[in-house]
Design a protein around this nucleic acid. Structure first.
Length: 506
RNA sequence: GGCCCGUUCGUCUAGGGGUUAGGACGUUAGAUUUUCAUUCUAGAAACAGGGGUUCGAUUCCCCUACGGGCUACCA
């Protein structure tokens, strides 16, 4: 059992965008699989057709692709244990549910949703289980002939697990250690719904068994239903093959309390989905980390360190490093509040550490969105190196780079005009002539020349440097003025000084 | 309400019976950058409370408080 091949799965239901916590679950599964030379499978849990959303499955696949966490087996990649969509495995589950009924570990229940709702409302602490199952309409409480008659008549019914009395179910969680439950406290969960589809509880056990899953990592919200799953593994006779469990801590709202949700993103102004998700029904577009300008490497990095660390002070990890260093036992037990400021820091750090060639395609995309189409890659690479330390999110590249390709749309006049005078105007007019006579602008030659010229004219360097910058850039930011001028070239520099002169004197 | 899980700076976290309780984000101050950002230096900032166990508990145990999750024919 210990030499069993490592096989893990991510099993989302296709109901909408993929949330931070979901991607982190994928990440931890993926890291564990790759570290142990195992398989990572994607299984689509689409057993609830009322919640099924068109396009959600493709979206999930795209997210995994963007993150670089591609599954070895999936509905589209296929695999030895296909199909990987539970809706396509529907027939399978009934057989196991019936088997459980036969063995006395499950039973048919005929109660309607309305009857149960009524009970839940009227009886405090009502649970379909130990205490009440005898007073409800099921194959445990009804005489056999009546059950047969109901079944023959095609009466809608579900199959429920029969929780045993007075047992303690315990297991070892790879993150939490020993966890235990009293069966008297757990209710008789529905295993097979009236429409013939399994619930999560049945499907997850059957599929994990059939797909030979060795380790099951999922969010902490699943912990309370773990005893149902444990029992099912046992009743179905598969106990020896049961995966090892790990329940991951939740990602919480940065303010207040509770699980992080889609709404929090809108409320607090940051994304919670990996990629933007468009809801065709409501017409609502929920922004994603990708669209906001996160590098996938940074996104993964920040997710990995939310609840995990390697025990050293290292915070920046490549995917390969994560695979090498990851250990599920080092995942924290407590939930973590999401901090968007730190998320941005990770991205800035990744931009700084990435070389310009890697950044190039991203930057070209950003600029293209602003109708700046670059043909000279070499020039762009030089520029990226010049300014990448100033960028936090990818769109910042437009802010920091746009003026190399477009004239300033406006000038920060408030920073120049109050101190602007004819003397400065004359200085620049003469400077244009000086520039006209040189071959090309070389920062290391032209900057000292500029300074010398300013001194010669009896001006303070700072007094002319700032207006010069604003002529070229439009505002008070950016790299060294002469690096900008050099990239712009002599003619364009002269052109911008000329236009600046007009604007400043107006 | 019941059950389960959790609790170290504002946040993410390291640590673990004897430590000046470490790092990071953010924040404050300063230096560098004749801009902005980067970078550098320094600072403020935490073991939820109460009982045990112990020579000694932030660390182990119990209780309380607080937080979170679950309590659907949703996952």
């Amino acid at each position: 059992m210990t030499d069993k091949k490592v096989r893990v799965r991510f099993a989302p239901s296709p109901t909408g965008g993929l949330h931070l916590g979901g991607v982190r679950t994928v990440l931890f599964n993926y890291l564990f699989a790759k570290k142990h030379k195992g398989d990572f499978v994607l299984r689509i849990e689409d057993t609830d057709q009322t919640r099924y959303v068109e396009g959600a499955e493709e979206y999930i696949l795209d997210c995994l692709k963007w993150c670089g966490l591609e599954p070895d087996e999936s509905p589209v990649a296929g695999g030895q244990y296909a199909p990987y969509r539970q809706s396509e495995r529907k027939a399978l589950y009934r057989e196991y549910a019936e088997r459980l009924v036969m063995q006395g570990h499950a039973y048919y229940a005929f109660d309607t949703a309305e009857e149960l709702d009524k009970n839940r409302k009227e009886i405090p602490n009502f649970q379909y289980g130990q205490a009440y199952r005898d007073s409800l309409r099921n194959s445990l409480s009804l005489p056999q002939h009546e059950v047969d008659a109901l079944l023959d008549a095609g009466t809608p019914h579900v199959i429920r697990i029969k929780m045993p009395a007075d047992e303690t179910i315990s297991f070892h969680d790879m993150i939490r250690g020993h966890v235990s439950f009293e069966t008297n406290q757990v209710d008789d969960k529905v295993l097979l719904k009236a429409d013939g589809m399994p619930t999560y509880h049945l499907a997850v056990v059957v599929d994990d068994y059939l797909m030979k899953i060795s380790h099951a990592f999922r969010g902490e919200e699943w912990l309370p239903s773990a005893p149902v799953h444990l029992l099912l593994w046992d009743y179905l006779g598969w106990k020896a093959d049961m995966p090892q469990w790990a329940h991951l801590p939740l990602i919480l709202k940065p303010d207040g309390h509770g699980k992080l949700s889609k709404r929090d993103g809108a409320r607090l102004g940051f994304p919670v989905y990996a990629m933007s998700w468009f809801d065709a029904k409501t017409g609502e577009l929920t922004p994603g980390f990708r669209e906001l300008g996160f590098l996938p490497e940074a996104f993964l990095n920040l997710l990995a360190t939310l609840g995990w660390n390697d025990g050293t002070d290292q915070e920046i990890f490549t995917l390969d490093e994560l695979i090498e260093k990851f250990s599920i036992e080092r995942v924290n037990k407590a939930g973590a509040k999401f901090d968007f400021e730190k998320a941005k820091w990770f991205n800035a750090e990744w931009i700084k550490r990435s070389d310009a060639t890697t950044l190039l395609p991203h930057v070209k995309t950003i600029l293209a969105e602003k109708n700046i189409n670059i043909t000279d890659d070499q020039r762009l690479i030089t520029l990226i190196d010049l300014i990448k330390d100033r960028c936090v999110l990818l769109p910042d590249f437009y802010q920091q780079l746009g003026y190399f390709f477009e004239e300033p749309k406006s000038y920060d006049l408030a920073s120049v005009k109050p101190k602007w005078n004819d003397q400065k105007g004359d200085f620049f007019k003469e400077y244009i002539e000086k520039l006209a006579n040189i071959e090309a602008i070389q920062p290391e030659l032209e900057e000292p020349a500029f300074k010398a010229f300013a001194e010669e004219k009896g001006m303070k360097i700072g007094d002319v440097m700032m207006p010069f910058r604003i002529m070229l850039v439009g505002s008070k930011f950016g790299p060294h003025v002469f690096d900008i001028a050099a990239s712009l070239g002599k003619q364009e520099t002269i052109n911008r000084i000329t236009k600046g002169l007009v604007a400043f004197s107006a």
